[in-house]
Simulated assay, not measured.
Amino acid sequence: MFRGFDSEGFSLIENEALCNGNKGTCSLKQLLEHISSNPMELLSKNQSCEFSRFCEKKYQDLIHPTMESSIFSNLDRNEAVLNSWRSLSVFYESFVCMASSIWTLHKLAFSFEPVVEIYQVERGLDFSMVYMEDVTKRYNFPGKTKVKVGFTVVPGFKIGRTVIQSQIEVPVLVAVLILKKVSTV
């Protein structure tokens, strides 16, 4: 969902200026317009708006047709049928609400000067308390044990020189092995 977050148009429009003048003011205006409306109503009113294109692109990128067909096995792949179920489906409405939250965060990030930067911690990197928060918080890692990142749960952000930690998952298997090794010493 966050792929393209660092580009002004969320990588929807290539090499095209989205705003004339101050980018921060334009993003803030778009943010205010977006939060004053229901996301599903926005899609039904203007199917060619940026938010609608964002939802469609992310849906196509994330929801594999096999998964979609297993969820909606009684629907065929006819575009008219899919468009009608998307307007009514609780699944799609939940997806749009999630997309709306990320879209809102993106517009908020681009309303700051300097623009808020996003970062994601890759699997296998050493845990760092400066940039990461372990969401499991189940284990106390003693000594010089190198804890590795299992996966990113929530990306991190940098606002100027301020770091908002990325939330990561430390693999349980690694944690259990470390605890066993410590207990045998």
Rank of each mutant, 00 (worst) to 15 (best):
50 E>S: 15
93 E>S: 15
10 F>W: 08
56 E>D: 11
174 V>F: 06
168 I>H: 02
147 V>G: 08
53 R>N: 14
5 F>Y: 14
70 S>C: 02
159 I>Q: 08
4 G>M: 10
136 T>E: 11
169 E>L: 09
60 Q>T: 14
68 E>K: 13
16 E>V: 06
100 S>G: 01
135 V>P: 04
47 Q>D: 15
10 F>P: 03
142 P>R: 11
144 K>F: 04
43 L>G: 02
127 F>M: 05
143 G>F: 11
185 V>P: 02
81 V>R: 13
91 F>H: 10
62 L>R: 00
66 T>F: 13
129 M>Q: 09
128 S>I: 03
135 V>W: 00
8 E>R: 09
76 D>P: 04
50 E>C: 12
57 K>Y: 06
146 K>Q: 11
149 V>D: 03
185 V>A: 10
178 I>S: 02
67 M>S: 10
81 V>L: 12
134 D>Y: 10
164 I>Y: 07
135 V>F: 08
115 V>D: 03
34 H>Q: 12
45 K>W: 00
37 S>V: 01
127 F>Y: 14
43 L>E: 05
99 A>N: 05
44 S>H: 11
149 V>M: 11
38 N>A: 00
121 V>R: 01
24 G>W: 03
75 L>G: 01
14 E>Y: 11
10 F>I: 07
12 L>I: 10
7 S>A: 09
145 T>V: 14
151 F>L: 06
104 T>A: 15
127 F>A: 01
16 E>Q: 12
123 R>H: 07
163 V>A: 03
55 C>F: 05
159 I>W: 06
39 P>D: 05
103 W>I: 03
36 S>Q: 08
70 S>K: 08
64 H>F: 11
33 E>D: 06
11 S>M: 15
13 I>R: 14
52 S>P: 05
116 V>L: 11
14 E>V: 10
150 G>Y: 05
141 F>Q: 00
143 G>T: 08
63 I>C: 10
171 P>T: 01
62 L>H: 02
182 V>A: 08
19 C>Y: 14
168 I>G: 01
69 S>L: 12
161 R>F: 09
99 A>C: 15
23 K>L: 14
29 K>C: 00
147 V>E: 07
184 T>W: 13
81 V>P: 01
83 N>L: 10
2 F>G: 10
77 R>F: 12
141 F>M: 07
22 N>T: 03
11 S>P: 05
119 Y>S: 00
184 T>N: 15
139 Y>Q: 00
81 V>H: 13
43 L>P: 02
89 S>P: 01
140 N>P: 00
35 I>V: 15
129 M>T: 11
93 E>H: 14
131 Y>R: 13
72 F>A: 06
152 T>V: 02
140 N>H: 13
113 E>P: 00
63 I>L: 13
65 P>R: 07
42 L>K: 05
139 Y>C: 00
19 C>E: 06
116 V>F: 07
